[in-house]
Nucleic acid binder design. Sequence first.
DNA 1: ATCTGATTTAATCAAATGATTAAATATTTT
DNA 2: AAAATATTTAATCATTTGATTAAATCAGAT
Lengths: 207, 207
Amino acid sequence: MAKDLNTEQKIKEAARKVFLKKGFAAARTRDIAEEAGINLALLNYYFRSKEKLFRQIMEESLHTFFSSVLPTMSDPNVSLRDKVPFFVNSYTDVLISNPELPVFILSELRNDPDHIVQTLQMNKRLNLSVLFGQIMEAQQKGEMIPLQPWNFLLNLLSLTVFPFIARPLIQRLSDTNDEQFKQLVEERKAMIKAMVMGYVFTEKGKG
Amino acid sequence: MAKDLNTEQKIKEAARKVFLKKGFAAARTRDIAEEAGINLALLNYYFRSKEKLFRQIMEESLHTFFSSVLPTMSDPNVSLRDKVPFFVNSYTDVLISNPELPVFILSELRNDPDHIVQTLQMNKRLNLSVLFGQIMEAQQKGEMIPLQPWNFLLNLLSLTVFPFIARPLIQRLSDTNDEQFKQLVEERKAMIKAMVMGYVFTEKGKG
DNA sequence: ATCTGATTTAATCAAATGATTAAATATTTT
DNA sequence: AAAATATTTAATCATTTGATTAAATCAGAT
């Protein structure tokens, strides 16, 4: 554990590591204290409880996971055609840097969905109306095929995020190392963009 | 809890319910016993330990999750073009009936990936060589664009499975009920098939 | 240097939890 | 029916675990 961090930062860094690896229920406060190189009581002195510490980590994780792309996706000055490659490139890069984030968030979503959704909505970055408005407008102009806006977004999310969720399975079944996995998802960038845009945009929309 | 099941079946049904809802670490054996309407000691009498009970549930879950589609995907007598719609239709139906399965498997994958992969490989149904062979053959014939076989499989899996993983988020953000969610994934069936096949198969391959 | 408040620790508590035991009850076999 | 075996229960154990306490140490102000 780096020496140049103050105690609070050390604890948070350790907590992030342990929580992301094991999830809330399986993580023990003693693990976190040991990882941080401090005493168990000190953890409670700084954060009051495991729950409170966890919430801070979760909120920061949600911020990392969403705020890297959502502001641009909510920007009416960025066209729909520009948003697709931006989303795929940015998100892939975020996930390469934080590969454990999707499983962490999506598995904790099962235990306390309301806290996560509430945190997301407080972070005013989540505003789908602009994106969905652009989709419906493009459809009215005949530039895009009929498709539920949510299904459009789900396609981008699925194709980008899912490989990181299934990563332990993929790497074992295909017997590949971390570097090869990174190469796989890098190759997916171009593929996802071509597949999604080729499917949703009409000839008129491609012009 | 149904009265016409014997004790072992009652315990397993209760365990499945609790484990799938909470995951291994957060599930308590007392929850399972109560859900089954039996005493805690009886659970250990039948299954020896929480761990052993969990492994049975996990192995059955893996069987449900994989063996419904993989045998056909490994069948050399089924063409690649037929496999895509079969996969999407069958998998979506399995997931509609077992919506909690993906999060359960993929989040436990983090804790004990080797057990899961080992269980999968013992279940001889997992044989990707036929599918991957068909992909490479189609590419050599010019019927399919160049694409890593794993990325082809990942596209199908991502687009089909991911919505079920993100379901709590989707339903809250879009304010929809279970019936509307089912409708959404039903609509995705046709979309996924059209998008994936439109992208990977060349004009020659579509003939 | 001393006082004061913040930080850190060792020790301990209380509750939760997986598991066991021994006894009671039900079922099957003889 | 009696014996033997299987099933079920209440009570208890031992460990784990989140949290607290009281004392010790450190840092900065006076």
